[in-house]
Amino acid sequence: MPESAQSTDDILVRVRDLHFARGSRKIFDGVDLEIRRGKVTVIMGPSGTGKTTLLRLIGGQLKPQTGQIWVDGEEVPKLKHDQLYRLRKRMGMLFQSGALLTDLSVFDNIAFPLREHTKLPESMIRDLVLMKLQAVGLRGARDLMPSQLSGGMARRVALARAIALDPTMIMYDEPFAGQDPISMGALVQLIRLLNDALGLTSIIVSHDVQEAAAIADYIYLLSDGKIVEHGTPEALNHSSSPWVSQFMHGLPDGPVPFHYKAVAYRDDLLAET
């Protein structure tokens, strides 16, 4: 991030020297990143680098061993239960599975956060839900149950639910994984559109390089528990680092070898069993 353009108020999420381990397995080993307000920031990295874990840390569902996580001026790991829940009303999160409540219809799923957190009359809740559904193009699907939705539709419903309380920021966990080209296109457009129209701040965790790079304002590349590179999509596309280049262009072999660590092929085949 260019130092000159940086002002404190401009940054919604700040992560400093984050360390996190599950058992003996280190997941983050000193991560620093800053998410600017109003921007779409993409965090990319190979599978299994803890991208989802990062979102859970920002959302306060996990606590780091050391390091600081600031969201909108509050230090997340130090918040008390009530303060954390108050902060979460300003965050939306889109889970990879959608995480829709399976015993409620599409309409009731989107009404759920409104009914839980507001005392709005039912007629107003109806209007709000229909507005959110219209925004994701699924107003006609309001009476369906989650089990009747396709993967792409479920994710759009979850998106409508995530914006139901008009949050400041929204976190997407692998929004493009396993989508067909059409729903992928719809999601890409939707994320950008919602971000700009509602003045949101979006954090996307993804390994779909092309789609993510298409809507990103800024990209962080995560590998082996560290941020290896960050910059605008153009800057990363023309990066001189061989690792970044391999990742951004999806080359099968390079600094990240095609083969998982193993003994020599010949020795393995000839080994006595």
Binding site: H81, R88, M93, A99
Partner: peptide, 17 residues
């Protein structure tokens, strides 16, 4: 099953305990 399908996690993130 609500836990396995992330429904409980989802509720937490919607600030519903």
């Amino acid at each position: 099953l609500m836990k396995a399908t992330e429904q409980l996690s989802g509720m937490e993130m919607m600030a519903v305990d």
